[in-house]
């Protein structure tokens, strides 16, 4: 018996478009909030990947800031004469710098975890679809088993065992996410598998790997890639949540989630900036990713119908 899982709202199909509206990238780009989301994403990517070099401080180098400057409200000046526009955290880090660097950690974790999980999931899904039978049953049983656990619990316990670190968080996210890709890939590849051209290729004696990667993969990857867009957002959220629970990235390399978490206790004292600003950055990032993913799905679905 397959166990129910928490339903993923992102995987509920968006509105079915009326058939006469065909997939049209230009039209999608015209959507106002789509445009905003795309612009926001580009800006965030640029900020996260490039701007750290222009940040006022390197928040990972402990000698560049001082605990004497800790918990300064936004707009104050630190001892070095730096104006901290978004305040400082409990260690005296400038929040602007911390957010820029934190964004980079969040993006890195999201992208790395997703691409790894995607590769594993796609391979497993292809194998299951290609060979079917026992192999399929075994792999899907494993997928069901993994998906039966709450992802946050698996990641939490796993990280408790293997310790903290950016690499370890990525591993934990891959462990909980690959199964989703495997399932979607298998479903999509199954459809292709039954098509005539695949049969023809098999009859011609092409090796299995060639059929898998040359025929099944390109024709069924679309839906998986769209889901992957949304799952980047998931991975980033998961990383933030794990860091909030104290098992994510190390305190010396705060991600956005860890910055939010470390401000929790100060929130009650009205020192809001430590949690508020990194959280906003996180929100904009996740929201833009989800928005783009949603529109891509919409486009894909309307092309199918």
């Amino acid at each position: 018996m397959t166990k129910p899982r928490p339903i993923d709202p992102t995987l509920v199909p968006p509105l079915v478009e009326t058939p006469q509206r065909r997939f049209n990238l230009r039209r999608i780009k015209r959507r106002p909030n789509m445009k905003t989301a795309l612009i926001a994403l580009v800006v965030i990517l640029a900020a996260g990947l490039l701007l750290p070099f222009a940040a006022p401080q390197n928040p990972y180098d402990l000698s560049t800031f001082s605990v004497m400057d800790n918990r300064l409200p936004p707009g104050e000046r630190s001892l070095d004469g730096l104006t901290v526009w978004l305040g400082t955290d409990s260690q005296g880090r400038d929040m602007v710098s911390a957010i820029l660097y934190g964004m980079r950690v969040s993006l890195l974790v999201g992208l790395a975890a997703t691409s790894l999980a995607l590769s594993i999931g796609v391979t497993v899904g292809l194998l299951a679809a290609m060979f079917g039978g026992r192999i399929d049953a075994l792999l899907m049983r494993l997928v069901d088993f993994i998906l039966g656990f709450p992802s946050i619990l698996v990641a939490l316990v796993l990280l408790a065992v293997i310790g903290r670190g950016v690499d370890k968080v990525i591993i934990a996210i891959v462990v909980v996410q690959w199964a989703t890709y495997a399932r979607i890939m298998r479903a999509a590849a199954m459809v292709e598998r039954r098509k005539e051209y695949v049969e023809a290729a098999e009859n011609l004696g092409y090796p299995s790997w060639r059929i898998m990667f040359r025929h099944l993969l390109p024709n069924s990857i679309g839906s998986v890639l769209v889901v992957a867009t949304i799952y980047v957002a998931h991975a980033i959220t998961l990383e933030a949540t794990l860091s909030f629970l104290g098992v994510g990235v190390p305190v010396t390399q705060p991600s956005l989630g860890l910055l939010v978490a470390s401000g929790f206790e100060f929130l009650m004292s009205g020192e809001y900036w430590i949690s508020l600003f990194p959280g906003l950055a996180l929100l904009v990032l996740i929201f833009s990713l989800n928005l783009v993913g949603d529109r891509l799905r919409e486009a894909l679905d309307s092309r199918r119908s």
Binding site: S66, Q91, G246, P250
Partner: peptide
């Protein structure tokens, strides 16, 4: 936070201390 502040002071004399903060059970 105390550990991170100590690491900050150690970094000023050239000792690079990477804080590994974990839950008490571990």
């Amino acid at each position: 936070q105390v550990a991170q502040a100590i690491a900050q002071y150690l970094s000023r004399v050239g000792i690079q201390a990477d804080v590994d903060a974990m839950t008490a059970s571990i």
